[in-house]
């Protein structure tokens, strides 16, 4: 192809992971979400923060328009049992079921199996190590990328 010959894809550096950090519902605890957003950015990701009080519809709309590979939901209100399954259903409806979804905040141990059953790939409670979260997210996204 002469001049337009592309450098082989192995030479092309991997593009940054695009991740949405979302605060759905009425929960106003945003310290964790902001700390997480900064940690992900410092790990080289492009982080789209939604701000507070988004509806599940708005969160999923954001994931679609930003074409994010990952969604981090932060909830400290106890509303995860209602909000998370709704977000997961809407993601599927939108054709974004490959999105890696992580959940964090105050999620009681007994709710974790239900969250995972709904499709959440990882749940991280208070005191979680940000390095671990970042590495886990990176690994999960890379697995999805490899499949595509």
């Amino acid at each position: 192809m002469g001049l337009m010959k592309k450098t082989s894809s192995s030479e092309k550096p991997a593009s940054p992971i695009r991740v949405v950090v979302a605060k759905p519902g009425l929960d106003s605890h945003d310290r964790g979400a902001k700390i997480l957003a900064r940690a992900l950015r410092d790990a080289g990701m492009e982080v789209i923060y939604t701000g507070l009080h988004r509806t599940p519809e708005e969160v999923v709309r954001t994931v679609v328009e930003e074409d994010a590979e990952a969604l981090c939901i932060s909830l400290l209100s106890g509303a995860h049992t209602a909000l998370v399954p709704r977000v997961m259903a809407l993601l599927k409806e939108a054709g974004m079921e490959d999105t890696v979804v992580f959940l964090g905040g105050t999620i009681p141990e007994e709710d974790v199996p239900a969250m995972k059953a709904a499709g959440v790939a990882g749940v991280y409670g208070p005191g979680s190590d940000l390095k671990v979260i970042t590495a886990d997210l990176q690994a999960k996204v890379e697995r999805v990328r490899a499949k595509a």
Partner: peptide
Amino acid sequence: TGGALLGDRVRWQRRIAGDIFFRS
């Protein structure tokens, strides 16, 4: 690091009606 914080959506604090496609 190549990372970025794309925070312009945060200003969307009110419900906004209308057909808007937003990309950061």
